[in-house]
Design a protein around this nucleic acid. Structure first.
Lengths: 130, 130
DNA sequence: TTTAGTGCAAATGTTTTGCATCCAG
DNA sequence: CTGGATGCAAAACATTTGCACTAAA
């Protein structure tokens, strides 16, 4: 069975995600992990993230650049963010406007919804001034 | 000034987007364009798409795979799609549930929204059966 | 012990860039 | 003409994969 062993590498990745104030890209996780274990491989990061994803331990989103970002799937978490186009800060967006619509769509368009992503772009408080 | 000349290549790309029933990826545009002009270069596709984007002639979205897709920005168009995870068909999703929320967010979180993307994943009518 | 997980390197696939040439205005 | 646009090839990215080796259980 895949993803069962608690390796040092997996623990590092989990703790990085746990301590992060915002979702991290695979590259960010890699760079942070390098400081803890200097010989960790990028492929290890990706393989662990994939395994965690399929076990629903983490969630995945997509930036406009095509990079994926990851965050812990700890109940509170979701995939709705306000993303600042200047500083790339990702703010939590606590409300999901899709709850009611989902069932409407399912019946009216005969489409079985499994998930969705919503990303709102603009400028955060700080960057509005610059 | 960039993107001003009406080259044969630009015209091909525009007509492909105009005649497409759904957004196209750069790769799809390239393959279709090859049949019209067999020596067209991928970089020409990308450079034209970039130029059109910065002139707001087209809009860009992102698939879960990290591939970008493009569609004409002709008023009707928006970036809300139902994307089938099996056949990759993209259905129009005519309702935007964000209209009211946007102004709320702007004031309550002090975030200046410029745009957003919403992608809903699941299974279309056909693929629900397979 | 045994096999999932790792590190490393090479391969993928999309997108970008350098550069000599070409052509729209 | 002349600079913007092209085609081609190479480079730059993020991500995936093959394989021998390592280490968790």
């Amino acid at each position: 069975m895949a993803g069962t062993r608690n390796t040092k590498q997996k623990m590092i990745i989990l703790s990085l995600l746990k301590n992060a104030k915002q979702p991290l890209t695979a590259g960010e996780i890699y760079n942070k992990a390098l400081k803890i274990q200097p010989n960790i491989a990028k492929s290890t990061i990706y393989r662990n993230l994939d395994a965690m994803l399929s076990r629903n331990e983490i969630k995945q989103g997509m930036l406009q650049s095509g990079e994926s970002f990851y965050s812990l799937a700890d109940g509170q978490n979701h995939l709705h963010y306000l993303i600042c186009k200047k500083c790339n800060r990702m703010l939590d967006f606590p409300r999901c406007p899709l709850g009611d619509l989902e069932s409407d769509i399912a019946t009216s368009l005969d489409f079985e919804i499994t998930d969705h992503t919503l990303q709102i772009y603009g400028y955060c408080r700080k960057c509005q001034r610059n």
